[in-house]
Nucleic acid binder design. Structure first.
Lengths: 135, 135
DNA sequence: ACTAACTATCCCATCCATGAAACAGTGTAC
DNA sequence: GTACACTGTTTCATGGATGGGATAGTTAGT
């Protein structure tokens, strides 16, 4: 029987999540690399599921995704209490995400991008109290 | 200046937690090694804070501890309001300045610039009381 | 005394994740 | 056309995490 520990990192899911988010924002690998501190080459490998990223890079990327780390870990807790599956909502248009998208738009001047970001930020702040859902 | 990402693994806290739990249970390193699948030598290094364990071992150990991984990660989520923007534009986003920038943007048609200026002007007037500036 | 069975730590060869740079492909401007 | 600035991928040398085995230390039994 030895031991049977099925805990491991679901690298592919992380890579898919990164790629999805990155393409949604219209960012290049190097854009994400600059923001997260993970090199573009490593990012490419992660998105394609080659190898396993180290803990620091996983922390950086899940931090960028605003995603709980356990979402990409296959964890078997020792005390057998069922952990409620984390449902991940990747599409909330926060001001930061909108801002990243705007800044990445090569057709917008930095000033325009900043203005639009500011606009969205103001509107978001106004409505976020009433439009809150998530559950 | 390019980026400031403070996400990393708090290895020492993990090691301390492991050691505490292990000694509470009166287990040896090899006992824990057999149960978790992490070798005794690696376990010793982790408890002593030498080096950084890889993601799989972190998953195994946090799984054994029944501890959420994020507890040992210093995560800075992208939607946190304290996150410093990648590029910082210090100017005040008043309607006049926004309009000037929009008109100066050669990638925008005059009509689009007008529309966006007007939109921002209305929003600014409406929300300027509640809008908070980045700092 | 001497084993024998433990313990944790150290040594070391192997493996592999990493990032910089080179690469090949795609537009885009001039 | 010819550069130029992008894109994602791949090559490559290096650093470091790993686990098996060696080591030193401790305890218990004989």
């Amino acid at each position: 029987m030895a031991f049977r520990n099925e805990n491991y990192v679901k690298t592919l899911e992380l890579g898919q999540a990164i790629k999805r988010r990155r393409e949604e924002l219209g960012l290049s690998l190097r854009d994400v690399a600059d923001v997260t501190g993970v090199s573009a080459s490593t990012l490419s490998r992660i998105e394609n599921g080659t190898g396993k990223p180290d803990a620091d890079n996983i922390a950086r990327l899940t931090g960028w995704l605003d995603m709980p780390m356990d979402r990409i870990m296959n964890k078997q807790s020792s005390s057998s209490n069922e952990v409620e599956p984390v449902i991940y909502y990747p599409h909330e248009a926060t001001p930061e995400i909108v801002e990243a998208h705007l800044r990445a738009d090569k057709n917008l001047s930095p000033e325009t991008a900043n203005a639009l970001s500011e606009l969205f930020r103001v509107a978001y702040k106004q409505f976020s109290g009433t439009a809150k859902k998530r559950k």
